[in-house]
Amino acid sequence: MNIFIIETKQRVATVMKPLLNAPGSPHTTIQASLPEKAEAVSSDVDLLIIDIPIPPGNGLELCRKWRSARPGLPIILLSVADNIDDKIAGFEAGATDYVEKPFHPRELNARIHALIQCNRPTPPAQKATVLQYADLQLDFHRLSAIRGSKEVELTPREFHLLEYLIRNPERPLSRDELAENVWHTPNTRTSFIDVYINYLRKKIDTGFPTKLIHTQTGFGFMLKDKQQPDNLTL
């Protein structure tokens, strides 16, 4: 596993290297770079971590460039900014995950392994080629969705989130459940899930009279194509 860390000081790389290479863990190569030299590294990278400075402009621009060059690459942003606008800006720049500082190294370690695991292709024998709910299809060969006759491109994280929704239709799914089963890490700060649900809504429900992704007030989310109970809101 090759991890590339972009940071002004090599604190994250120094702390994470022994943890990622603990006994029993797969060997991990960690490269670290200053932001101004971040584009001069090998493309053989399995996961990218960007430690965003304040102001965050340069860090977000690096994220956009890497996302454009490597659409399927897992990218983790680290930042002291903890408000929802900063998180949305990070996700819109192409981040797969967003970790607030300060954080415990074990949490970052868990997130790294979860993203690597999610990004590995699943052997076809373990999954159906296509999952379907109502007029929504999830295509595992093309890693995309089809709503009606409209093909929808998804990021890897959006794909896994939609897969979990389709495999658990018409059942309220809490943010904690989604964090544990899609992100594979329990997380008390689950506002990022709302961001991804919003992304899916724009891609899956926009332009269709029947909405499939619903919010259950005070609980979580549900995939449902029938008339919603009164306590569900869009």
Rank of each mutant, 00 (worst) to 15 (best):
P169K: 07
T122A: 01
I75N: 08
F192R: 03
R167M: 04
S68I: 01
Q227N: 05
L47I: 11
C63I: 04
A13T: 13
K150E: 14
K87P: 00
W66K: 10
I116C: 01
E170F: 11
N58G: 00
S149V: 10
T233R: 07
H113G: 00
L20G: 12
Y196A: 07
G148M: 04
N168C: 13
I88M: 01
R147T: 01
I49A: 11
L178T: 00
I88F: 01
P186G: 04
L48C: 09
R189S: 09
K37A: 07
Q216G: 02
Q126W: 11
I112C: 06
G90W: 02
N168M: 13
F221G: 02
Q10G: 13
F91P: 05
E180D: 05
L20D: 12
R167G: 02
S149D: 12
R64C: 09
L162G: 05
P186V: 12
D194A: 14
A134D: 12
S43T: 07
R67I: 00
T14I: 03
E92V: 01
A38W: 11
S33L: 13
L178E: 02
A38S: 15
E107C: 00
T155M: 15
V99P: 09
D86Q: 02
V152E: 06
R70F: 15
R70V: 01
V41E: 09
P74F: 10
N198G: 06
E177A: 02
G24A: 05
G220I: 03
S42W: 07
